Amino acid sequence: TLEEDLKKLQLSEFFDIFEKEKVDKEALALCTDRDLQEIGIPLGPRKKILNYFSTRKNS
């Protein structure tokens, strides 16, 4: 689940933002850096999230 993935990244504090915006794993895989910025995710966590999901998509 998205919540489990965020826990792996030690970013579970952002789960509420994704839940509020109705972003699940499938939607997050389609998000850009700009999308994450617009919903209030800071730069460092955005980079970690985007890297994590891009490596999952390619495997």
Results as ranks from 00 to 15, higher is better:
1 T>A: 03
1 T>K: 03
1 T>Y: 13
1 T>V: 03
2 L>D: 03
2 L>R: 01
2 L>E: 07
2 L>W: 02
2 L>N: 01
2 L>Y: 01
2 L>T: 05
3 E>C: 01
3 E>W: 08
3 E>L: 08
3 E>D: 05
3 E>F: 07
3 E>K: 13
4 E>V: 01
4 E>H: 05
5 D>G: 02
5 D>A: 08
5 D>M: 07
5 D>T: 13
5 D>H: 11
5 D>N: 05
5 D>Q: 10
6 L>S: 01
6 L>K: 05
7 K>Y: 11
7 K>L: 07
7 K>C: 05
7 K>G: 10
7 K>I: 01
10 Q>Y: 07
10 Q>A: 07
11 L>V: 03
11 L>N: 00
11 L>P: 00
11 L>K: 00
12 S>A: 11
12 S>M: 08
12 S>V: 09
13 E>I: 00
13 E>P: 03
13 E>R: 03
13 E>D: 06
14 F>H: 02
14 F>V: 02
14 F>A: 09
15 F>H: 09
15 F>L: 11
15 F>Y: 08
15 F>K: 12
15 F>G: 11
15 F>A: 11
16 D>R: 12
16 D>K: 12
16 D>H: 10
17 I>T: 13
18 F>A: 08
18 F>W: 02
18 F>P: 10
18 F>S: 03
18 F>Q: 05
18 F>T: 01
19 E>P: 00
19 E>W: 03
19 E>S: 10
19 E>F: 09
20 K>I: 05
20 K>L: 04
20 K>V: 03
20 K>D: 08
20 K>F: 02
20 K>W: 02
20 K>G: 06
21 E>R: 15
21 E>A: 15
21 E>Y: 14
21 E>G: 12
21 E>I: 14
22 K>H: 12
22 K>C: 09
22 K>D: 14
23 V>L: 14
23 V>P: 04
23 V>F: 15
23 V>K: 13
23 V>T: 06
23 V>A: 04
23 V>H: 04
24 D>V: 01
24 D>S: 15
25 K>Q: 06
25 K>N: 02
25 K>Y: 15
26 E>D: 11
26 E>F: 07
26 E>T: 07
26 E>A: 10
26 E>M: 09
26 E>P: 14
26 E>I: 07
26 E>G: 14
27 A>Y: 15
27 A>F: 15
28 L>K: 03
28 L>G: 04
28 L>V: 12
28 L>P: 02
28 L>R: 02
29 A>C: 06
29 A>L: 05
29 A>D: 06
29 A>Y: 10
29 A>N: 13
29 A>Q: 04
29 A>E: 11
30 L>R: 15
30 L>A: 15
30 L>V: 14
30 L>E: 15
30 L>G: 15
30 L>C: 15
30 L>D: 14
30 L>S: 15
31 C>V: 11
31 C>F: 15
32 T>G: 04
32 T>Q: 06
32 T>L: 00
32 T>K: 12
33 D>S: 06
33 D>G: 07
33 D>I: 01
33 D>C: 01
33 D>Y: 02
33 D>K: 02
33 D>F: 01
34 R>C: 11
34 R>M: 14
34 R>T: 12
35 D>W: 03
35 D>C: 06
35 D>L: 01
35 D>A: 05
35 D>H: 12
36 L>R: 03
36 L>F: 01
36 L>T: 05
36 L>I: 03
37 Q>N: 05
37 Q>P: 00
37 Q>C: 12
37 Q>A: 12
38 E>F: 03
38 E>A: 13
38 E>P: 00
38 E>G: 05
38 E>D: 12
39 I>Y: 15
39 I>K: 14
39 I>C: 03
39 I>E: 07
39 I>V: 10
39 I>G: 06
40 G>M: 02
40 G>I: 00
40 G>A: 01
40 G>E: 02
41 I>M: 13
41 I>D: 04
41 I>V: 11
42 P>L: 00
42 P>T: 00
42 P>W: 00
43 L>I: 15
43 L>G: 14
43 L>M: 14
43 L>F: 14
43 L>H: 15
43 L>P: 15
43 L>S: 15
44 G>T: 14
44 G>K: 13
44 G>Y: 08
44 G>I: 14
44 G>W: 06
45 P>V: 14
45 P>W: 00
45 P>R: 01
45 P>F: 08
45 P>Q: 14
45 P>M: 11
45 P>C: 07
45 P>N: 06
46 R>Q: 06
46 R>K: 04
46 R>M: 03
47 K>Q: 15
47 K>M: 15
47 K>T: 15
47 K>G: 13
47 K>V: 09
47 K>I: 14
48 K>I: 13
48 K>C: 03
48 K>T: 14
48 K>G: 01
48 K>D: 07
48 K>L: 11
49 I>C: 05
49 I>M: 09
49 I>P: 04
49 I>L: 09
50 L>S: 02
50 L>R: 06
50 L>G: 05
50 L>I: 12
50 L>W: 02
50 L>K: 07
51 N>A: 13
51 N>H: 08
51 N>K: 12
51 N>S: 13
51 N>F: 00
52 Y>L: 04
52 Y>F: 13
52 Y>I: 04
52 Y>W: 09
52 Y>N: 13
53 F>D: 10
53 F>S: 06
53 F>K: 11
53 F>W: 04
53 F>M: 11
53 F>R: 05
54 S>I: 08
54 S>Q: 12
54 S>H: 07
54 S>T: 09
54 S>C: 06
55 T>C: 12
55 T>Q: 11
55 T>E: 14
55 T>K: 13
55 T>N: 13
55 T>W: 05
55 T>G: 11
56 R>I: 09
56 R>K: 08
56 R>A: 13
56 R>M: 12
57 K>G: 10
57 K>P: 11
57 K>W: 02
57 K>D: 12
57 K>M: 12
57 K>C: 06
57 K>Q: 09
57 K>V: 07
58 N>W: 04
58 N>M: 14
58 N>C: 06
58 N>Q: 06
59 S>K: 02
59 S>H: 10
